[in-house]
Amino acid sequence: MDETALIHSAQNGDLDAFNTLILHYQDAVFNTAVRILGDEDMAQDAAQEAFISAFRSITSFRGGSFKAWIMRTVTNACYDELRRQKRRPTTPLEPETSDGEEMDSPKWLADPNMTPAQQSEADELEHAIQHCLDELPTDFRTVVVLADIQGMDYTEVAAASQVPLGTIKSRLARARLRLRECLRGFEELLPSSFRLEGERTL
């Protein structure tokens, strides 16, 4: 895939070229949205809005990392979604049973390659991590999602977040520190190496 040619075609109004770019980035965009928002439905809305917005403003893309540019769009869409959520009645993060209780192992997290026990542990760990991510301020969460979950470098994160590089370093360090403190509350779910290290530092 010649990304530059596709971007150029999309800038000339070629929707098919832009859809090829969407197919390439949609997993990363959705994953980022779901980690920032903590909700799959909201993440889908944000991802779709981000792509629509990206197509409409693709002429403003002046080169550089397209991934960082598209991540900036999805980050803005997530912020919009969070603002919208504040105006609406909140819904629980976990799906509920017919009795109104939260499902421990929701179907939407199921991985058919795992045993039920492994699946349950993975679900709980993922829930624990998502819970700790949700506890972070939105700006910190965005930086840690882009850097540690999406694996973007500092320059890309700065471009996506539209904040200076120094701020990114500071936010990332603070976010990691807070996450570490939060994850201590879920030590039984964490890998053994993490538990031992935690006990040593305590």
Partner: peptide, 25 residues
């Protein structure tokens, strides 16, 4: 430093969520 490394490692181990549908326009 080790704490920070392990925290980052846990985040990196988070399973990547795939898009449940295509977002083509």
């Amino acid at each position: 430093l080790n704490d920070l490394r392990l925290t980052r490692g846990i985040l990196r181990k988070l399973p990547a969520r795939k898009a449940p549908r295509n977002f083509t326009l």
